[in-house]
Design a binder for these strands. Structure first.
Lengths: 230, 230
DNA sequence: CGATCTATTGACTAATTTCAACAAACGTGG
DNA sequence: CCACGTTTGTTGAAATTAGTCAATAGATCG
């Protein structure tokens, strides 16, 4: 890790919700406390049991955060992208990760160490409030994830995921919308708590019903998003 | 709701982690902003879609927080007891609950409205930091809940739950420890994501194997906690 | 272009749910 | 303090859903 020197127009903290309300001078002050690191696609950023050094903020790329059991079965908790953070608990105590983070693309991250973050919060109390907001939103997301995993069947979960991608990628279109999966089908399956085989079978069925159209590994055309939801 | 007048030795906030670092005067100041309410066992405190009024802190009793799908199937997210809070997102925006809260015993709660809480945080920034800690811990718990629900089989989940209760109720005993379930078997099943029937069958099996002994509806004797974990 | 990673498909297996009938425990009022 | 009604839990049989294993196919990238 070296002091954060990601290109200036994309300083770690400029776009991060917990910091982006600050003035330029305040950001410069905080930037001195940041360290940056890069990871190649496929590399492990941390493992369960690793001691957390501080708050990690993803600056570029995608990070897969997941739980893995003894048999090697994986449940993805979430995919972190630009401005997402992980390891908030390390701001309060010695913390050992309980999940694994893997770079699923090349990744750049920033690290803020506990003591530095405590100083920063002391200087700018508003940051604690912002971080609380971010973590509260994430808690809500995680509770909704539980709902998906336990109260919806496989087809409902797949549709829910597709609809989420559609909302992000083509908010205003209703028919024949082309979406690009932001992760592999294997990882999508891991996120919604099923196997790749089950996902593949279900997508094939939906295609045979004329509801979607599969193009290559990562592209799906949704024929009619309202009809899909039913 | 009326201004908080729960008996003085158990003022809502005296024991609440987010407030209990404050001085008596500071607590008195905050106490003026609290409202209290009581709910009978079985009553619904809020439903999905209800508009949140502010932060709810449970003062006494047990509250079941759960998601319920269209078919009426329920997934319990967590059981709230003394000092637990719910609705942090309402501190930041108009918030409509996405889960249901039911009093599973008689319950007393405190409510802090958004504007009041914002004033309080302004006056005592340390409270935002405390609340961040509480919510970060809860996020960790919720992620571990996902792990239980998706990566462990039914027997492992049941044992995990029993071991948790044992840790709370008889931290230093290893054999023949009597635990009292803090919730009905139906609710326990709902928490670990299985049906009551599946729970019942598995407990019966474990009893037939001599690993546990069932007594009445809420008591279980764990013969050997170390052997149980295997 | 070839190696490797990713996805598909089939046959089989296993785990849990559902429905239904019954039993036990609890707590409440007479 | 007991009887009764209600709530909670138990058990069986059948149905269902998704997972596993394995072989194959297709895509992607250097």
């Amino acid at each position: 890790m070296v002091a954060c020197n990601h290109q200036t127009d994309r300083l770690c903290l400029v776009h991060v919700p917990i910091f982006n309300h600050l003035t330029k001078e305040e950001m410069n002050y905080i930037n001195k406390h940041l360290q940056s690191a890069s990871y190649e696609k496929g590399s492990i950023i941390f493992m369960p049991e690793d001691q957390a050094q501080g708050l990690i903020v993803v600056n570029d790329g995608k990070v897969k955060l997941s739980k893995i059991n003894q048999d090697g079965k994986e449940q993805i908790l979430r995919i972190l992208t630009h401005t997402d953070s992980v390891g908030e608990l390390s701001l309060f105590k010695e913390y050992y990760y309980t999940s694994q983070a893997e770079a699923i693309t090349d990744v750049k991250v920033c690290l803020i160490r506990r003591n530095d973050m405590q100083d920063i919060i002391q200087a700018y109390p508003e940051i604690a409030r912002k971080l609380l907001e971010v973590v509260s939103e994430r808690l809500e997301d995680t509770e909704n994830h539980i709902e998906q995993l336990t109260l919806h069947n496989v087809e409902q979960r797949i549709i829910h995921a597709l609809v989420q991608f559609a909302k992000e990628q083509a908010p205003n279109k209703e028919t024949n919308l082309l979406i690009t999966l932001p992760l592999s089908k294997g990882n999508l399956a891991g996120l919604i708590g099923i196997t790749l085989e089950t996902l593949s079978r279900n997508l094939a069925l939906m295609e045979s019903q004329g509801r979607i159209q599969l193009e290559g590994q990562r592209k799906i055309i949704i024929k009619d998003i309202n009809q899909l939801k039913i």
